[in-house]
Design a binder for these strands. Structure first.
Length: 342
DNA sequence: AAACGCATCAACCGCCCACGT
DNA sequence: CACGTGGGCGGTTGATGCGTT
């Protein structure tokens, strides 16, 4: 038995909103607020619309200070990095971009950003392949992977990030070590008590504002592994996440930076969650790899002892974010409220 | 100018979760 | 504790616009 519909489907109007409907809704909410009940709202103001539809219309278009289109390079960067970090949590991503709605960002990602990244990626790989003669198939996943890396299981924990309320008030360009540290903290990491800023000298991220993906693509992302060890480096430096043998990752190994305990193995091995987080990233990781990660039970059980060189598959990848006080799979809506922050 | 294909985006759908009873 | 309901979310669809042939 299914649940009762939220409104009388036969008696509600669907499709595009007329200016009159917009005006009605807007003026009512501006004067009275939503009244805490979207379902009852359309009847109050004589709109033949579903309450959910009213809510959507208000949130996405009628609300003050909504921006449409014209995404900046900075916004691109934020969207990309958050997507890689937390997956398709559009509402969370939208919360970091004032004036943007989740729907807008979702559309933008699906229709443009994804293609933009993929296009650049293809060009680069094709250029490389010309040089080394590696035979590539036409499909995207193969383009993105080295021949033998398909069989391997990189550890890539995807962890929810906490609210970044001031994320956009700062420069999102990750171009100084302190802002990187702040960002990591905001994203849920916790530096050790004896943290000293100088410790981050070993932690190097793309310098400067990574214009779209170009600079990032030059990153050598290296997922190493004795166990569930992830490391990200750009040449002569590395940041490593996690700990071997499915133990809780209580320390960030290199760079004197440590994150609090997180059972990465557990998180990654939760198929549903992994699927949600990795879904849509096929163009970054390759479909086979995504499937392997999801079906294979995650890195804890499958990738230990293997090394995947992501250098050839470089993409938009930032350090996996490690949440504190994280246990198991986070419920969607309350995920971030439950995190504790320094 | 017409036909076609592709891209974009507003809106809907259905699921999950929180909360009240 | 179980159930019902509303809010919120991500995924998907379909109408429309635009570019190409």
């Amino acid at each position: 038995m299914g649940r009762a519909p939220c409104c009388d489907k036969a008696n509600v109007k669907k499709g595009p909103w007329s200016p009159e409907e917009d005006a009605k809704l807007k003026s009512y909410i501006e004067q009275h607020g939503t009244g805490g009940n979207w379902i009852a709202l359309p009847q109050k103001i004589g709109l033949k619309r579903c309450g959910k539809s009213c809510r959507l219309r208000w949130l996405n278009y009628l609300r003050p200070n909504i921006k449409h289109g014209g995404f900046s390079e900075e916004e691109d960067n934020i969207i990309c990095s958050l997507y890689v970090s937390i997956g398709s949590r559009w509402s969370v991503i939208a919360a970091q971009l004032p004036g943007r709605t989740d729907n807008d960002i979702k559309n933008y990602w699906n229709t443009r950003l994804k293609k933009k990244l993929l296009g650049k990626h293809r060009k680069e790989l094709q250029a490389r392949n010309k040089g080394n003669g590696v035979v590539k198939q036409e499909n995207n996943s193969s383009l993105l992977l080295q021949e033998n890396s398909v069989q391997q299981q990189p550890c890539w924990p995807q962890i929810p990030a906490p609210p970044l309320s001031s994320y956009t008030s700062q420069t999102p360009s990750f171009n100084d070590q302190d802002s990187i540290r702040k960002l990591l903290i905001k994203l849920g990491g916790r530096f050790s008590d004896d943290y000293e800023p100088i410790g981050l000298n070993n932690v190097q991220f793309p310098q400067g504002s990574f214009s779209s993906t170009q600079q990032i693509q030059e990153e050598q992302v290296h997922v190493s592994s004795s166990g569930c060890m992830n490391s990200i480096g750009n040449g002569n430096s590395q940041v490593q996440f996690g700990q071997s043998n499915n133990e809780y990752c209580s320390e960030l190994v290199q760079g004197e930076v440590s994150f609090s305990s997180v059972g990465i193995g557990e998180m990654v091995s939760t198929n549903d969650y992994s699927q949600r987080l990795l879904g849509g990233l096929e163009f970054l990781y390759g479909e086979e790899m995504i499937n392997d990660k999801i079906m294979g039970g995650g890195c804890a059980s499958s990738c230990c002892g293997q090394t995947t060189n992501w250098g050839e598959t470089s993409s938009v990848m930032y350090p996996p974010l490690v949440a504190s006080s994280f246990e198991g799979v986070m419920p969607r809506q309350s995920a971030f409220q439950e995190l504790s922050y320094p």
